[in-house]
Computed example of a mutant assay.
Amino acid sequence: MTTSDLERRLTVLLGERADAAMEQTSTQTRLADLLVTRGRDTSQRRRRWVAGGLAVAAATAAVALWFSSGDEERAEPTPATVDSVQIATDFLEAVYSHDADLATSFLSPGVRITHARTVGTVTESEWVDELAWQEAIGATLVDHSCRAVEANEVTCTYSMHGLGSDQLNHRPYDDNTLDLTIRDGLVEAFQDEWRYMDNGFSAEMWEPFAAWIVREHPGDVRAMYTDEGQNLPRLDPTSVRRWEQRVAEWVGTRR
């Protein structure tokens, strides 16, 4: 292939990329308008625009590098994943900051949320209620790292404290995972898994706390849990306040 042929192919492809960028900008404008109606602030919308712009720039740079190689057999480049890893990291940190507005600003409309080994798929509203419960039990992020798996897929591993485990001098509970699908700077789907059975959290924290509730506050079982087996918490505001109260009381008895 001659240099002129390469130049023509590069010109055509960059033109197509420019059209795609314009279309993406239009899409982001419509998305920003939607977020305004949902009460999201200007700074959150700006973060989405920057993420989208970086993704377009990275894709364009990848195309230029592909053509400059001069290898006709080379496959087309995949989109860069660095920005997706940063978005996943920022999202995980926002979740454990217990700031629902900030955390939801990362989510695409119609986001798919799954909790492995616990309650399955939940709505965004149910997930926001769970964030309030996590704050009530003192769930805090300790160590975490995220890495790209595929172009739009990122996985994070993290350790955490909960139910006052940090105040009781327990080690952080690790090997929890957050798997995300990220497109156009937004989280399209994610699956969060607390590995509580494997990392010792259930045996060392959840089960002793549940037994203490039965022994000291048996009337709270139905108020705080969805079932008599005490497997899942109730997430209504009254229950969340009770969780916060009882966790603080339980920690005080164990010091």
Rank of each mutant, 00 (worst) to 15 (best):
M1I: 10
L6W: 05
E7N: 01
R9Q: 10
L13D: 08
L13S: 09
D19T: 02
A20G: 09
A21Q: 08
A21Y: 02
Q24G: 12
Q28Y: 06
T29V: 12
R30G: 05
D33C: 13
D33L: 15
D33N: 14
D33Y: 10
R38Q: 15
G39F: 07
S43K: 08
Q44K: 05
R48M: 10
R48V: 12
W49E: 07
G53C: 09
A55D: 12
A55M: 10
A62G: 09
V63F: 01
A64D: 04
S68Q: 10
S68P: 00
D71A: 06
E73N: 09
E73R: 12
E76K: 03
T81E: 05
D83L: 08
S84K: 13
I87L: 06
Y96E: 05
H98P: 04
A100H: 04
D101L: 14
D101F: 01
S105N: 07
V111N: 04
V111K: 04
R112E: 15
R112F: 09
A116T: 13
T118I: 09
V119W: 06
V122Q: 09
E124G: 11
S125M: 05
E126S: 13
A139W: 02
D143P: 00
H144E: 06
S145C: 02
R147G: 07
A148I: 02
V149G: 02
A151D: 12
T155C: 03
M160F: 11
G162R: 05
L163I: 10
G164Y: 03
S165G: 04
D166H: 07
D166G: 03
D166W: 01
L168S: 04
R171C: 00
P172W: 02
D175A: 15
I182V: 10
D184P: 01
D184N: 13
G185C: 05
L186R: 11
A189N: 03
A189E: 08
Q191S: 14
Q191G: 05
W194Q: 10
R195E: 10
D198Y: 08
D198A: 14
G200I: 06
F201V: 07
W206F: 15
W206N: 09
A211I: 08
V214S: 14
R215K: 15
H217R: 15
H217I: 07
H217S: 10
P218N: 08
D220Q: 14
V221C: 06
R222D: 14
R222K: 09
M224F: 06
D227Q: 06
Q245H: 13
R246H: 14
A248S: 12
W250K: 06
T253L: 09
